[in-house]
Design a binder for these strands. Structure first.
Length: 595
RNA sequence: CGGGGCGUAGCUCAGCUUGGUAGAGCGCUCGGUUUGGGACCGAGAGGUCGCAGGUUCGAAUCCUGUCGCCCCGACCA
């Protein structure tokens, strides 16, 4: 049985005022209530109260990992360079990696994630398909030198993560291991009281095939995702445009070039078109009738720079995050004057006319790898064959009208570059999507054979043949989840923990100075402890009731017992932190309440 | 990396415009009075005003540089 903690000597100091460096609610309250203290930007120390909550979250995770058949291990945070050198991540992680050297000058790193060493450990110990499937996990601190940490625990440079890895030798096995982890995640987040949306995620630089994120919908979230009433959900970066059917353009009128002076922007172009070239059927031209050609520069990891033009409906902006994903690992920048100048100087290539760029000219194709310019030209998936566009004629002050895709120009391919908007149709036909903000609290990932291949993890299969193992990787941000839970469970007075996660089950407050109050409090504390609950007992003499009430509300233990003016009659008060409801209870009946 | 804000006591801040020997509230220590919503009285401890240089008889205050922190954006399995 545990021993009740007495506040008179507990390692705890609450702050009367909000810390000046905290703005996000969870950060503010966790610091103020004495759960954490900042050490450096994005790096926090854990005080007893904070550790207790963190441990409760970890216990839930451990129970569900065990239920999913995963075994717990523990790797160091400090690791040698070599495994990360082999997989290329020593370089790929760039500035995001904390690197250091030992006295001999050997390179080490503080692990941002542990795929490499888990893979090597399995390689070390296992050789046969009979050993698989295997799922192992750890709860360990991760280190990422974020360009900007924010929101206290929401994005730190040191944070606690549960990372699990699965090992199979067949694709079907990976599917099953992945599903087992995914199911465990659903149970974990449900037990944590965290609402979540499972969204399709971009596989990105991890190089895997299937990936889903668990996002908690919240305004403080950093991800934008879409969802439809019909059940589709995806991170905007993974959203795929519903491609409309091609249109039969036989009999469409020929494209025609018109003077459109002073129309470098879509807005001015639409205005000019309506004024001087009204549509035959009388409908006004809209931005969506124009094809906007955006010039971007792709910077490859080796530093080389390529110009690419993206054609998209004029009413859509380019979403830089989506473009980054589309062109990964290259970085994407808006083309600068230098890029344009270079284009103009290449002999034999017509210069693009800024503001009047288009895929077509009277002299032939202007965009595309087989065109006069040789510039790569990708279009939005909505630009299907038979769609008609107003777009730049590659002459200053002139645009071409009725330019038909598939007849007058052909792109090198399509690209998911355009912004996603509320009301866009979901790709699976489940209806229009809405946009929402979410915080990533979990990520499940089919890595495939990428790591096993580069690190040489193979086993002998039933036929005695060496096969490369296929892997999954599964993460939960433990400290981030704690912050999100705090973000969700509070009021103007302080934190309000769910019963399953509170640092203590019951907070006993002695108010008043009569000895009977303290005697009764001791008895109540013992009684509640005897029921198997942890008690935080505010036994401070000389501290006024107002301070104790305020601290209790700030700390946020769900059930508070006030021992005070009714003590002499054997009456105490039960105070529910969440509802604020207070009820008088005789001490003799208290045991029944905590049965 | 770009934009904005801020560095003065353990915490939250004032003082800076207009230079003149460092302030408040809370917290902390001691004594006393108080005890159901952040009490009161008295006595204390606690600060190289982020750092460096400059101007000046004199700098928290003015000037230059520098370091750091927070927020927004970029970035970020």
């Amino acid at each position: 049985m545990s021993v009740p903690i007495r506040m008179s000597n507990y390692f705890l100091r609450t702050l009367r005022e909000d810390p000046s460096d905290a703005e996000v609610t969870s950060h503010r309250l966790l610091v103020r209530a004495g759960y954490i203290r900042r050490q450096a930007p994005g790096i926090f120390a854990w005080l007893p109260l904070g550790l207790k909550v963190k441990a409760k979250i970890e216990t839930i995770i451990r129970e569900e990992m065990a239920a999913a058949g995963a075994f717990e291990v523990h790797f160091p945070a400090l690791l040698p360079r070599e495994p990360y050198e082999i997989t290329g991540r020593w370089d790929e992680y760039g500035d995001g990696l904390f690197r250091l050297q030992d006295r001999k000058g050997s390179d080490l790193l503080l692990a941002p994630t542990h795929e490499e060493v888990f893979t090597l450990m399995v390689k070390d110990l296992y050789n046969s398909y009979k050993d698989l499937p295997l799922s192992i996990f750890q709860i360990q601190d991760k280190y990422r030198d974020e360009a900007r940490s924010r929101g206290g625990l929401l994005r730190g440079r040191e944070f606690t993560m549960k990372d699990a890895y699965s090992f199979d030798y067949t694709d079907a096995g990976l599917d099953a291991s992945y599903q087992a982890q995914r199911d465990a995640y659903e149970r974990i987040f449900t037990r944590l009281g965290l609402e979540y949306v499972v969204v399709q995620a971009d596989a990105g630089a991890m190089g895997g095939s299937k990936s889903e994120e668990f996002l908690h919908p919240t305004a403080v979230g950093e991800d934008t995702f879409v969802r439809s009433a019909g059940g589709y959900a995806a991170n905007v970066e993974a959203f795929r445009t519903l491609v409309p059917a091609a249109i039969d353009f036989a009999g469409f009128p020929a494209a025609a070039v018109h003077d459109t002076p002073d129309t470098p922007t879509i807005q001015t172009l639409v205005h000019s078109a309506n004024a001087s070239q009204p549509r035959p059927d009388g409908r006004p031209w809209a931005a969506a009738d124009t094809l906007k050609n955006v010039v971007l520069a792709l910077v490859q990891p080796d530093g080389s720079r390529e110009i690419v033009v993206i054609g998209l409906p004029g009413d859509r902006e380019v979403d830089l995050k989506r473009v980054e994903v589309a062109f990964a690992p290259a970085e994407v920048e808006a083309a600068n004057d230098g890029d344009f100048a270079k284009l103009a100087k290449v002999p034999g290539r017509p210069a693009l006319v800024k503001g009047y760029i288009g895929p077509w000219s009277a002299d032939g194709a202007m965009l595309g790898e087989t065109s006069a310019t040789g510039i790569r030209f990708l279009v939005d998936p909505r630009v299907v064959d038979g769609t008609e566009w107003i777009t730049g004629a590659n002459e200053h002050g002139r645009h071409v009208f009725g330019l038909v895709a598939g007849r007058d120009f052909v792109a090198d391919g399509t690209v998911e570059a355009a912004e996603v908007r509320a009301g866009d149709p979901a790709p699976d036909g489940s209806g229009p999507v809405e946009l929402a903000r979410g915080m990533e609290i979990g990520h499940v990932f089919q890595l495939g054979r990428k790591y096993a291949e580069s690190l040489g993890l193979k086993v002998l299969d039933e036929n005695g043949k060496l096969v490369t193992v296929t892997m999954g990787s599964y993460g939960i941000g433990v400290t981030r989840a704690l912050a999100v839970i705090a973000e969700l469970n509070n009021d103007a007075k302080g934190l309000i923990w769910p019963k399953a996660l509170a640092p203590f089950d019951v907070h006993v407050i002695a108010t008043g100075r009569d000895e009977i109050v303290f005697e009764t409090s001791e008895a109540v504390t013992a009684l509640v402890e005897a029921s198997g609950r942890d008690v935080l007992y505010d036994d401070r003499r000389k501290v006024s009731p107002g301070v104790k009430f305020g601290d209790a509300e700030l700390i946020g233990i769900p059930t508070i017992v006030i021992v005070g003016r009714g003590a002499a009659e054997g009456i105490v008060e039960l105070w529910d932190r969440r509802s604020g409801e207070r009820t008088q209870v005789a001490v003799t009946e208290l045991a029944a309440h905590f049965a």
